[in-house]
Design a protein around this nucleic acid. Structure first.
Length: 997
RNA sequence: GCCCGGAUGGUGGAAUGGUAGACACGAAGGACUUAAAAUCCUUUGGCUUCACGGCUGUGCGGGUUCAAGUCCCGCUUCGGGUACCA
């Protein structure tokens, strides 16, 4: 019987499905383990081989845990709302629900082929009403809660209203958009509308006029993590700043808890670091600077530099601008602000020119008492701190650039520092020019200055975070509708019993004539005569709590039942890409903490352990086309094999003579064979002049020749053609081991149908490069094709074999034969032709050693996610058993179970061949018995000055002194020493002997 | 600029401070075959030697150590994150 992977994989996939092998239920008698893959967005392009990398890794771990007796939850579903489906709908008129459904079906089909152990009964889709019901429900909860900073916890908004009614804002501690202050009496005398408007200032889901990232091309706003370098992450469209009334989530309220929580999770340091930076906690002081009218409040982390403040800077959007601008400067300030508004964020980033304008006012330094000018510049951000800074040009490079540009004073504050060329930003040195801080180190000075400021009522110690609230409105169709209606312009939540609020139909997926979002087109989009919200929720809405829904996916009474949540608690292992480091992984932690505050979930952190799989890059292939354009306008094209292209490339300055050289010396025969004796003549190339030129080249150095050609000696007209050399991406699927399949290439694109080639050794060798895997580079490899050709088990093993899980690496289908051969070799331990070889003989010590060595290695590797080395270990094991001609059940059965996590189909088949009638998934994972690994002798490397000279086999239990003695008496040692006496002898028992001479 | 992570044969990669290059691909040679495929065997870092062997070798320059790919210091370079965050 042959290893017929096609038939065998199909058979077992069907068996697993029909017998619900992967169905999971809450089973209190077993310990739970929750393994999660990052939610895929079902794109129209389907999966490429990069996608399943993490899924295979998590699948191996899930199966391993199950074999170890855990009740494993390993679900899969789809992040089904999203921009691409909507963009596609705009272009084609096809409803996004339709295309999404098709894409999901394709994903499902592709995933099923790979043999994952997903419990498909738990599949969820964010675009389905039973799912987004709970997205909307959480939103209502967020609207009805505020964040109590004192208790660091979400609290019911009713509690806040009660406090307002009894004591106003007196003594409250909340996170809010704007600090407000009113008495109980004032509150109670306000109208309902006024009260609602005030409450928005405190709600965790709130509506506010915010400066947002507006992307005109996409016609929507974007969250900070959806914008990079001033353009949208999806599509690369420009983004500009605009003030709009938008829903937002008060993520920033949770900044400290999000930061603290990082200490409790088992994530990589680099990922934690990225989140830390994104949260951006900085401790400093808020200080007040007196103006002739009013005060300026600034935030600084360098209170120690207070004596070096020579000017103040306001953000153009700051409210302080109005206060500070004097009538004389009004026109200049207005012009400056108008100019800044026009620039998109991208322009501001790209163009680092120093710009600014003087406001006309002066402020008083509260410590030194000096008078300093107040400027306005866009290098100060309105959204951070107070939107105003104290500038210390000597010790801040941005302030320095500004001061130099506008000729402002620079006062150095550190002993011995030179600020004539640049500022000294480092926090080190001894203070000078700083009054009471003189002589202190910077660190001491920071503390002393803070203390001084607090004690003298100049300001207070303050912590700031870079983390912004998440803008939650999208002017889009394909997303969750908000459960919100408007009464007199104020938002109200639908009653929970009305959920889900289903996405309505529209005639077109475009904004209305009035510029409203697409939902403005929906008929009857209102409740009891009140209009419903026209925005929809962003992509991260549906993906922020999906891991909870998997615990109880069909529940129509709750997001997740307390029982299911108590059992599954949180994700034990989460595998996914780093691209979610600042988006999804912040939002879902925030979301989870909010639900934790409400007592809906029992764990504060959603993802205990997180592994980032590396990206699979593409490996592109190139063909090289050389085009000759003859003076008379005719052109010839030839495809050069890599070797010849390389010659030309290495001498790019000299294409003409070199090309000719290589034609005549290297390629002449090939040209004759390929194109006939008279190729050059037939093509109107002046053979005579070429011979002359060629002769000249051979006689002189290349440099000389080129000089001649391009200067005076030879007329440039002598060269009858122009040469263009191109490297063209070529579909990797028609290339094998860099050898081009010429027939397939000709059929690939019509323009290549008549292509002609210069070959090396009868083959066309392509060039290659590692690039992003993308359609445009023709380097996309589809897992379906691999499964078809080699089988799912080979694909799974090969993806793991490529290299360490967490590292980025290029996909190169070359090499897959190795793992496929391994499976065939394993099979050959069971069958030769149609004869089953397996017997019940007792295993030898050597065979047991091979097996148990492998058990030990595989167990260790799985626990450490070092899957590439486990595949190697399997290969070594099978190679050894093959050499030993071992066909014993006692060895092969445990090996089959070991392999079952990696290659489940073949393992299931072999397990049944061995006489088992239940699934290998429920076998017991073998345990290593160290007794079999004990060695009786050790081959000691004997080294001299660290260099190994020979090996010496000695009994394993030989004591150190004996080893030394035996080694020293050895004749090879005596030979190496050549009469010299060793200075020192180092013996590491069981390891090595080193003799120092 | 700042913060992370890398750099080992033709290629992917392996190596608790203890024989660098496991395992695999590719390549070369051989066996089987009418032939091909498949399979099996041998060789395969570089230089050198008829050979035994020798020298050299983990991006570069130093250092610690009996012993460094691995630890320390200083560079070069390639990825990734972040970008006026006061």
């Amino acid at each position: 019987m042959e290893y017929n992977f096609r038939q065998l994989e199909q058979k077992w996939q069907l068996y697993w499905k029909e017998n619900s092998i992967y169905k999971t239920t809450e089973n209190p008698s077993k310990p739970k383990y929750y393994v999660l893959d990052m939610f895929p967005y079902p794109s129209g392009a389907g999966l490429h081989v990069g996608h399943p990398l993490g899924y295979i890794a998590s699948d191996i771990f899930s199966r391993y845990k199950r074999l170890q007796g855990f009740n494993v939850l390993h679900p899969m579903g789809y992040d089904a709302y999203g921009l691409p489906a909507e963009q596609y709908a705009i272009q084609t008129g096809q409803h996004p629900a339709v295309t999404t459904k098709i894409n999901i079906a394709r994903y499902r089909e592709q995933l099923e082929k790979i043999g994952f152990c997903y419990d498909w009964d738990r599949e969820i889709r964010t675009c389905e009403p039973d799912y987004y019901h709970w997205t909307q429900w959480v939103f209502i909860k967020m609207f009805n809660h505020y964040f109590d900073t004192k208790h660091q916890k979400a609290q019911s908004i009713e509690l806040l209203v009660k406090m307002f009614e009894t004591s106003g804002t007196e003594g409250i501690s909340t996170n809010c958009t704007e600090e407000l202050s009113f008495t109980a009496q004032e509150w109670n005398s306000k109208s309902e509308k006024e009260q609602q408007e005030i409450l928005l200032n405190y709600r965790i889901a709130y509506l506010a006029d915010l400066k947002v990232n507006w992307c005109p091309e996409l016609g929507t706003v974007l969250a900070n993590d959806e914008v990079s370098e001033g353009v949208s992450v999806r599509g690369g469209h420009p983004v500009e700043q605009r003030v709009m009334r938008q829903w937002s989530l008060r993520v920033s309220a949770y900044a400290q808890r999000l930061l603290d929580g990082l200490q409790t999770v088992d994530w990589t340091d680099s990922l934690k670091e990225t989140q830390k930076n994104w949260i951006g906690r900085s401790e400093g002081a808020e200080m007040n600077f007196k103006l002739s009218q009013g005060e300026l409040e600034v935030f600084t982390t360098r209170a120690d530099t207070i004596y070096g403040v020579t000017f103040m800077v306001l953000a153009p959007e700051s409210d302080y601008v109005k206060i500070c601008t004097t009538p004389e400067q009004a026109a200049a300030v207005e012009a400056y602000i108008a100019a800044t508004k026009k620039r998109t964020e991208r322009e501001r980033i790209a163009d680092r020119r120093v710009t600014g304008v003087f406001s006309g006012s002066y402020a008083i330094n509260p410590v030194s008492g000096t008078e300093i000018p107040v400027w306005i510049s866009d290098y100060v951000l309105a959204g951070y701190g107070t939107g105003a800074i104290m500038a210390v040009p000597a010790h801040d490079s941005r302030d320095y650039a500004f001061a130099k540009h506008f000729g402002l004073d620079i006062i150095p504050l550190i002993e011995g520092c030179d600020v004539s060329e640049q500022s000294l930003d480092a926090k080190e040195g001894i203070m000078k020019n700083s009054g009471f801080l003189n002589g202190l180190t910077v660190k001491e000075a920071i503390a002393a200055a803070k203390k001084y400021i607090a004690e003298n009522g100049i300001g207070r110690v303050k912590v700031n975070y870079r983390l912004r609230d998440a803008i939650f409105s999208r002017q889009r169709y394909w997303g969750e509708p908000f459960p919100v209606y408007y009464k007199a312009g104020l938002p109200y939540m639908l009653d929970e019993s009305k959920l889900p609020l289903e996405l309505p139909e529209v005639d077109k997926f475009l904004p209305t004539e009035k510029g409203e979002p697409p939902l403005g087109r929906a008929k009857g989009w209102e409740v009891e005569g009140f209009p419903l919200e026209l925005n929809t929720m962003p992509g991260f809405a549906g993906s922020s709590a999906y891991y909870l829904r998997y615990m109880d996916p069909k529940n129509d009474k709750a997001l997740v039942s307390p029982e299911a949540n108590q059992y599954w608690r949180n994700v034990d292992l989460y595998i996914g890409g780093t691209e979610h480091a600042t988006g999804h992984l912040i939002y879902s932690r925030f979301w989870n903490k909010f639900l934790f505050d409400l007592g809906i979930v029992c764990e504060e952190e959603p993802f205990k352990k997180l592994i980032n799989q590396g990206m699979i890059q593409g490996r592109s292939n190139f063909v090289y086309r050389i085009i000759f354009i003859i003076n008379d306008g005719r052109r010839f094209e030839l495809f050069l094999s890599y070797k010849f292209y390389n010659e030309i490339k290495n001498n790019i300055l000299y294409p003409f003579p070199l090309l000719f050289e290589s034609w005549f010396s290297t390629l002449n025969s090939e040209i004759k064979i390929q194109f006939g004796e008279n190729y050059l003549i037939d093509n109107g190339i002046d053979v005579e002049s070429y011979f002359t030129l060629s002769k000249k080249i051979r006689e002189k150095s290349l440099d000389e020749t080129v000089n001649e050609i391009f200067q005076e000696d030879l007329n440039i007209d002598l060269l009858p053609f122009e040469v263009i050399v191109q490297n063209i991406h070529c579909d990797v699927n028609i290339v094998s081991n860099d050898v081009l399949d010429i027939e397939k290439f000709k059929a690939w694109r019509p323009e290549f149908a008549d292509a002609e080639f210069i070959l090396e050794d009868g083959k066309y060798i392509c060039g290659w490069a590692v690039e992003k895997m993308s359609k445009s580079m023709y380097n996309v490899v589809n897992p379906d094709d691999i499964v078809e050709k080699y089988g799912a088990d080979t694909l799974r093993l090969y993806e793991m074999f490529l290299g360490p899980l967490e590292q980025s690496k290029p996909w190169d289908t070359n090499g897959i034969d190795g793992v496929h051969r391994f499976l065939k070799k394993l099979w050959s331990l069971f069958y030769k032709d149609d004869n089953l070889l397996v017997n019940n003989d007792l295993p030898t010590a050597e065979e047991l050693k091979t097996l148990h060595k492998t058990i030990k290695k595989i167990t260790f590797d799985i626990e450490n996610f070092s899957y590439n080395t486990s595949v190697s270990a399997f290969m070594i094991c099978v190679n050894e058993l093959f050499t030993l001609k071992c066909n014993k059940k006692a060895i092969l059965e445990p090996l089959t179970i070991l392999l079952a996590s990696f290659a489940p189909h073949i393992a299931e088949e072999l397990y049944h061949i061995l006489g088992n009638e239940t699934t290998v998934c429920d076998a017991v994972f073998p345990v290593c018995n160290e007794e079999y690994l004990v060695e009786s002798s050790i081959k000691y490397p004997i080294s001299f000055n660290g260099k190994v000279r020979f090996m010496l086999e000695l009994p394993a239990d030989m004591p150190k002194e004996e080893v030394e003695k035996t080694a020293m008496c050895n004749e090879q040692t005596i030979k190496q020493l050549a009469g010299a006496s060793p200075k020192k002898i180092i013996v590491v028992p069981g390891k090595i002997v080193n003799i120092v001479m």
